[in-house]
Design a protein around this nucleic acid. Structure first.
Lengths: 163, 163
DNA sequence: AAACGATAGTTGACTTTGTCCACTAATCTC
DNA sequence: GAGATTAGTGGACAAAGTCAACTATCGTTT
């Protein structure tokens, strides 16, 4: 991947203006989206040099945490379609960060594993992510941070359970 | 940090395939994305009958809260490109929910206004959004809800300020 | 063991969404 | 008035997700 030009994720700059939010400000979903948009924008900018496809990082992280996971399970965990997962694993293999191994018990399955090089890359990515989040989390006390994680987990459980 | 990452020795026991998050669980951005994805999915499903384009709802809400706002200002507020805003306003006008009026002072600008019908539609949409969020927020105490909003606002201010 | 349906992975067509660039009309500056 | 700037528009393009079909394996039924 030496010759291709790196795609630069740039977008409209976050505007600090005096626009009223109105009733929109009463909803958590709006605040959530706002923060999350900016965070992912920052993370993409920090990793623009690598030209990472979105979803690649989390997929790699999930595989690392679940050695031998199948592509279907990975799809479910990351929330992507199976077909998208295929192309992500393709890229991961191309980079040499992960590999497919046919499962011995069920030869339909591809058991996924992270390579040592993939582990190193993951370390780098996690470090960058920590850096990006650090500036934001610095605003929060430890208790608030903990509360936030806890609340978000409960919200996630609630919203997932009712589907 | 919350209680999520649990190293699982995945044995050949497919009781309930719980996927480990690993280090990913240490990041707020991940949790944020997770919850927000599910929430917006639910909201889209609740409004599938209307075939709403994404961003249309928030645009309408912003116009309602800022009568006479220009398209550029709206773009900045919602975080979309100007060209995208154009097509959104096109749709809003087609539905009869909003309208462009040429500004008298600056004839380049389109001052945007929500129609009475648009206001009624907005009421319906806000009601649905409340319904969608209600199931999730029900998990939270009032104090937690308040703290969540406060924390998210501070995070947003922090991430916006450093650009 | 042959046949059936179900599952894992793959591929390709299609839609949606966002980004970028060029063009116009109007405004502002000098 | 000339030239630069801004608001809005249109179109080309790329990234990303959805969907349906297809192959190969597996499990179960008969």
């Amino acid at each position: 991947m030496a010759s291709t030009s790196t795609p630069q994720p740039r977008g409209p700059e976050p505007e600090r203006s005096e626009v009223a939010l109105g009733r929109l400000g009463d909803f958590v979903g709006f605040r959530l989206r706002r923060v999350q948009n900016q965070l992912s924008r920052k993370f993409a900018a920090a990793n623009a040099d690598l030209g990472l496809r979105s979803g690649l990082f989390s997929s790699l992280a999930i595989v690392a945490a679940n050695p031998g996971i199948s592509q279907s399970e990975l799809s479910g965990a990351v929330g992507l379609d199976k077909s998208v997962t295929v192309t992500i694993i393709d890229e991961l293999e191309k980079y040499g960060w992960a590999e497919r191994r046919r499962s011995a018990e069920d030869r339909r399955r591809h058991a996924l594993y992270v390579t040592p090089e993939g582990d190193r890359q993951l370390d780098r990515l996690f470090a960058r992510m920590e850096e990006v989040e650090g500036a934001v989390l610095h605003q929060l006390s430890d208790a608030e941070h903990q509360m936030l994680n806890d609340v978000l987990d409960r919200m996630y459980d609630a919203v997932v359970r009712e589907l």
